[in-house]
Every structure is written in C-alpha cells, then in structure tokens.
Write a protein that binds this DNA or RNA. Structure first.
Length: 365
DNA sequence: AATATTTGACCTCC
DNA sequence: GGAGGTCAAATATT
C-alpha cells in the first residue's frame, strides 16, 4: 500500500507541476508536455500495478477500507501510510515553507479538504502547490480571539469628505479594518520581465493597486492590490505582492478573499474548466501580445526547466471570454436582454468601464 | 474625461 | 510607539 500511495502522490505532484507550468510559462514546449505526461502516466501505472497486486493478493486484510485520519481500529495502518506518503510529498518541496502554516497534526482536516466546486483561479493556485515554482500555501488567518481585533470603526455623522488632511483632523473614514478573517493563499511566482522592469506574471484577474509599503527588514516594498471590480460587486479579493530578498526574481503573492465579481477575468488556458457552451468568438478572443524576451530575463528560478522557456513570451491578457458562456446564458433576472448586453460587450471593446456599467445596474438592485 | 498609480496620512493591532 | 494595512488627494496614463 505504501508503494501505491507513493506512486499516486508522485503522479499528483507531477501533474501539479505540469499544470503550473502550462498556466504560467508560454509557449509550452511540446517535448516538455510529452515528457511530463509520460512521467505522470508512469507514476499512476505503477500505482495501478501495486494496487492490482495488492487486491489480488491472498494477504489482503479483510478490512481494507482505509479511513484516513480516523481513530478506530483498522484505520491506523491506512492513516500512517497515508501520512508517510504525504510527508514524502511535503519533503519533496511542495510545502517546504508551509510547515508553520500547515501543521501535520491537522493534515486530515486541512490537507485533504477539497472545495466541491473550486473557483477557477483558486483551483489553479491550489493545483500549483506541488513544486517550488508556484508554491501555494494556505493559511488560516489570525484567529480573531481577542474580540477587539478586526473591529469596524464607524465614522461620526456629517464627517464625509476628504479623508486626507492634517494629522488629527480625521475620523471620517467609515470602515477600516485589518486582519482579514478570510483564508489567505500564498504563492511564489517567478518574475516576468517586460521592458526594463520585472513584474509578477498575470494571474488572469484585474487588480487595482491601492497602496505600497516599505516593510521592515525587507529590501523591496510590498504592494497592495484589490479587485478592480470591488466598487461594483463589493468583490473583496485582494492580494499583496512582494519581491523576495533572497531571490529578487521571485515574487511572493498573498491572496486574500474570494472573487465575487463575474467580470473577473480568467486566463484562456483555463478554458478546459469552462462549460461546453462557451464560445470564444473572434470578437472576444483574448488579446495576445508577443514580446521578444531573452530567456534569461524571464526567470532565474531553478525550478523552471529551461526547455519550458522560449525566446518569446506570450502573455494572455485578461479576457472575459471564459465566463461569457456562463453568464450570457444565465438568467440575469433584471429583464435586460442578454443580446443587448452581449452587444455592449462585443462592440465596446473590453474596457472595464463598459463592463462595470453593465454590472453596476445589477449590483445596485 | 475616465481610469490607474503614487504616496503621505490615517487607522488598527500588537 | 511601531509596523503593517488602507484611504484618498494628487498625479500620471490612456
């Protein structure tokens, strides 16, 4: 059983590595795809063989059902082998820096939970956790145990207006909070060079920068972003981006909150997640820009195989196409003809203002 | 003109 | 009191 589990976890790890690579490095080298696919197949084939031999073995215990994390009799063996395999997976680098966040004593509860219908972007991040590149760590944010943390400040009446002024003149800000109670996901991504500056790769969503802060002990400032569509949906998704001191070509991105906006964009490569009725027409096809980049400029992250990096980087621009099939066929409920909305979308370019104008009418109701 | 970014001030939490 | 997160006026960009 140990062997089979090891093979399964190895296959999962390889699959995550491949998925992360496909998502973030363009163009993909077909040789690399082939090699990776074969490795995954080999791993699962090995698992299959091990399981077959186990099942056909006369030594198979009567109670062979594993209850992972269970405490009753019959579960201990399964659980221990499971944790051995999981530890193997962890020690391979997938969770190398998450140990403080990922207490192994909680693995049955935390590590095995899978969202029933994961958000596309979230799923992508979760799947990306198996390699040093694109590592993802889940962190339950600081528990609000004091009762005073995260409280909301209420502005005094009649205090609206400019929030900027001389010290001591404020008090008009209605809500200001720290310590988001939502789940945080930490991802490390290689820098992408555009022109003379490096930046994190596009994650498919549209973000608006709302702050930057010098962090004590860090060489590089931390940037704060929130979803562009926050004003229209109350979309609370945020992210913090910081360059690593030890590796300036790697960014650590902390995602906070889930996107609740329908216009949040999704990389084309996730189209396999889209419903079958999704139609990507030329009018809404993603804009593809090609930049000639020296491969050494793309990343120096050793976890990326050089074969994956071409001399040109094709970066998918945020596209609304993926979700169109979803919500164009959805009952928008406000009596607004879908065709009209599509017309607005297709004929007005992809400016967020037109998008927001559409959805603001929904949101306001 | 509309939208995004910059940046100093403000606020919360430790 | 200091660090980190957020706000919003000023400024830049599209």
């Amino acid at each position: 059983m140990d062997e089979a589990l090891n093979h399964i976890f190895e296959g999962c790890k390889l699959a995550r590595n491949l998925e992360t690579s496909i998502r973030q490095v363009f163009p993909i080298n077909p040789d690399y795809l082939l090699k990776s696919s074969e490795e995954i197949i080999t791993a699962f084939n090995s698992a299959s063989k091990s399981l077959n031999s186990l099942i056909n073995s006369p030594d198979l215990p009567v109670n062979s059902n594993m209850v992972i994390g269970g405490s009753g009799e019959g579960s201990s063996h399964g659980a221990s082998t499971f944790f051995q395999a999981l530890n193997l997976l962890q020690s391979s680098g997938g969770f190398e820096q998450s140990r403080t966040l990922f207490d192994t004593t909680q693995l049955p509860r935390v590590g095995l939970e899978m969202p029933a219908v994961p958000d596309v972007a979230t799923a992508g991040m979760e799947l990306g956790g198996g390699s040093g590149y694109g590592n993802v760590f889940h962190e339950a944010t600081n528990a609000d145990v004091s009762g005073t943390r995260g409280r909301v400040r209420v502005a005094p009446e009649g205090s609206s207006g400019s929030g900027r002024g001389p010290a001591g003149s404020s008090g008009q800000r209605s809500t200001r909070r720290r310590r988001d109670n939502g789940q945080r996901m930490i991802q490390r991504v290689p820098a992408v060079r555009t022109g003379n500056s490096e930046m994190p790769p596009d994650d498919g969503y549209t973000w608006r920068k709302y702050g930057q802060k010098d962090i004590l002990g860090c060489r590089f400032p931390r940037s704060y972003f929130r979803c562009t569509h926050k004003n229209y949906y109350g979309c609370e998704a945020k992210k913090q981006v910081q360059r690593l001191d030890e590796d300036p070509y790697t960014y650590e991105i902390v995602y906070c909150g889930q996107h609740s906006c329908l216009t949040s964009t999704t990389p084309l490569l996730i189209s396999s997640f889209a419903p079958t009725n999704t139609v990507v027409t030329s009018a809404v096809a993603p804009i593809i820009t090609t930049t000639t980049i020296n491969s050494s400029n793309v990343t120096t992250n050793p976890h990326i195989e050089s074969s994956m990096i071409g001399t040109a980087l094709v970066q998918m621009q945020p596209s609304t196409s993926i979700h169109l099939g979803n919500w164009l066929t959805r009952d928008l409920g406000e009596g607004r003809p879908v065709a009209d909305m599509a017309d607005v979308l297709f004929n007005s370019g992809s400016s967020s203002s037109s998008m927001d104008a559409i959805f603001s009418s929904q949101h306001e109701n």
